[in-house]
Design a protein around this nucleic acid. Structure first.
Length: 260
DNA sequence: AACCGTTCCAACCGCAAACGG
DNA sequence: CCCGTTTGCGGTTGGAACGGT
């Protein structure tokens, strides 16, 4: 990562302005300066702090990374729930969402949403009353949620299956369509054979509100215990309606926690 | 080992809002 | 109210890290 330096016209003098990743030395300069003089003017500060950066770059580095009150680390269940709920009501107003999450920045939430949540949310359009910054105008914005339901493939924690051999899907290489209630109790179960690829005909037979498509974990399919590890292969229509958010989220978080 | 595609996030950019003289 | 400057926001991206072949 070679440092990138640009020439900027500044009065008569040509100032060298650094761009790209911040070095630990630069971080220290910024932290020390703010500790001593507080934040008074971002655009003036860099030259006093001995930094060859724009004020914009300094502000970003401080607010998104150096600020002492930042939380860091993975999002908790509660935080993830908040992000999803707030996004459903506010849309992409990341800074407004960040106000509900102390220690998290708008940039962090935006990244979290795009990398962990977006692709798993089903395709639906949410109409959001978008409060414009002028406070006077209300824009109505159509939030286009991803129409692509990318499979959420991850390891699921032990979900207690029924003590019914006919429902033992540990050795099955086919997909299973299982309806759970909120306690992960299996409400309904349908198994597809390998050659049966007609998903919709199966789906139509069961409650399509809570369908989760599962497939058994190939590595751990030797035991025939009633407790099985599963791969969540796909989540269908679970996250489309807000009433289903908790259900989907619980599965997602449980699976994700197990992996870490 | 070497290559290649994917994931993820820090940092960028352009634009709009807010500020203040 | 105007206008230049500063701050804040959201979309986008470069590249490090990772995973697979």
């Amino acid at each position: 990562m070679g440092e990138v330096v640009f020439q900027l016209q500044h009065g008569k003098k040509m100032d060298r302005v650094k761009k790209g990743a911040w070095s630990p030395q630069e971080d220290k300069k910024l932290i020390d300066y703010i500790a001593k003089y507080r934040i008074w003017n971002w655009s003036q500060m860099p030259k006093f702090a001995g930094l060859s950066r724009t004020g914009k770059s300094c502000r970003l580095r401080w607010t998104n990374y150096l600020r002492p009150d930042l939380k860091r680390g993975p999002f908790s269940v509660e935080e993830t729930q908040t992000v999803i709920r707030m996004y459903q009501s506010l849309g992409n107003r990341w800074s407004a969402i960040a106000k509900e999450l102390p220690g998290r920045t708008d940039n962090e939430i935006k990244n979290f949403y795009h990398t962990h949540l977006k692709k798993h949310l089903g395709g639906t359009k949410v109409e959001v009353k978008h409060k414009a910054r002028s406070k006077k105008v209300e824009k109505v914005k159509q939030i286009e949620m991803s129409t692509q339901k990318k499979p959420l493939i991850t390891t699921c924690p032990n979900i207690e299956g029924p003590n019914d051999q006919s429902l033992d899907f540990t050795n099955s290489s086919s997909s299973s369509y299982i309806t759970f209630d909120e306690n992960y109790e299996i409400l309904d179960f349908l198994e597809t054979s390998n050659q049966d690829n007609d998903v919709t005909s199966i789906v139509n037979q069961v409650d399509d509100e809570n369908i989760v498509i599962l497939e058994s974990n190939p590595e751990r399919s030797t035991s025939s215990s009633s407790s099985v590890d599963l791969h969540i292969k796909d989540v269908m229509d679970v996250s489309v309606h807000s009433s289903n958010v908790d259900f989907w989220l619980d599965l997602y978080m449980a699976a994700d926690n197990l992996n870490t």
